[in-house]
């Protein structure tokens, strides 16, 4: 229909892309530069081809006195995975229970879960810490992950999905004499597979990007996540090894970006169709 090239659109979009790619590129190029040059403010747009060793260096050794980056990446990865899988599992189960069963206090359960939407960790910092200390979960991987696994959003989402299943399908399963477990496995899981995939991306990124919670419950450097680790690196007032900070930043960005890009199709659909 329109044969002319839409220059305005291309220019705006290229500028938009540059707004995000350029800072990351600068940091990537900066990581490979000589630390002295960085300190003098002589950052080059081009990476120094002899400087890529810095990535292996921070991965293996980290910054002086800090945990090696590979270890922090592993903690972050474990945390993100545990939170994503855990949230999806217990939300599927609880949504199944409140949708397809009738049991005493069913709606009370539903509303109790719903209320947690209104209690983000940021508003209950101190008392949650006290509870964690009471359970002896400070400085443990369990403490890092389990409290973040409860999720109203995922439960609500799965409930919507389950409610949208056509009556005929439910009826047919009932006629076939499907028990609770078979019904869950053969009907509910396949129907919600796309939502599970989308939610996995959202929750993996959520888990990877946590900052306040790990800061509170894990003071042991061996439990430092990559996000905690980087902020620590730039927090020291003395000479900051900027090239290593830049290299670590790039490494910290790669895993969640890879998950988003690889699962982009499900992710975008799931994000905009779910409530949040």
């Amino acid at each position: 229909m329109n044969r002319r090239i839409d220059w305005t659109a291309h220019i705006v979009l290229i500028l938009g892309v540059a707004l995000f790619v350029l800072p990351v590129w600068l940091v990537f190029a900066g990581a490979t530069q000589d630390p002295g040059a960085i300190d003098r403010g002589e950052l080059s747009l081009l990476p120094n081809l002899h400087g890529f060793g810095v990535f292996a260096d921070v991965l293996g050794n980290g910054v002086a006195g800090a945990t090696p980056v590979w270890r922090m990446l592993a903690v972050s990865f474990g945390m993100a995975l545990a939170i994503a899988v855990g949230k999806i599992a217990i939300s599927l189960l609880s949504a199944y229970a409140v949708t397809f069963f009738r049991f005493p206090l069913r709606m009370v359960c539903f509303w109790t879960i719903f209320i947690t939407l209104m209690l983000p960790v940021e508003v209950r910092i101190i008392p949650t810490y006290a509870v964690m200390a009471g359970f002896g979960l400070i400085n443990s991987f369990t403490g890092l992950t389990v409290p973040l696994i409860a999720s109203a959003t995922a439960t609500l989402l799965f409930r919507q999905v389950f409610l949208a299943i056509p009556d005929e399908l439910v009826e047919a399963a009932r006629m076939d004499g499907a028990g609770p477990w078979r019904f869950f496995r053969d009907i509910l899981l396949p129907v919600s597979a796309a939502n599970v995939a989308a939610l996995f991306v959202i929750l993996f990124v959520y888990g990877w990007n946590q900052y306040l919670w790990p800061l509170l419950v894990a003071t042991d450097p061996r439990l430092d996540t990559i996000v905690i680790g980087i902020v620590k690196m730039i927090g020291t007032d003395s000479a900051v090894p900027w090239n290593k900070v830049m290299a670590t930043s790039v490494l910290a960005l790669l895993p969640p970006i890879a998950v988003v890009l690889l699962m982009q199709r499900w992710f975008v659909k799931g994000l905009t169709e779910g409530d949040k």
Binding site: L93, S94, F100, I113, L119, P127, V131, V146, A150
Partner: peptide, 29 residues
């Protein structure tokens, strides 16, 4: 939507979510 009888199974299903909610959300709040 209620298609299954019994209450033990559904209670077992909501229990993990409820316990986490109680200990890490309601109690601290």
């Amino acid at each position: 939507r209620t298609i299954f009888r019994g209450w033990l199974l559904p209670v077992a299903f909501v229990l993990p979510q409820l316990l986490l909610t109680f200990f890490f959300f309601l109690w601290p709040a």
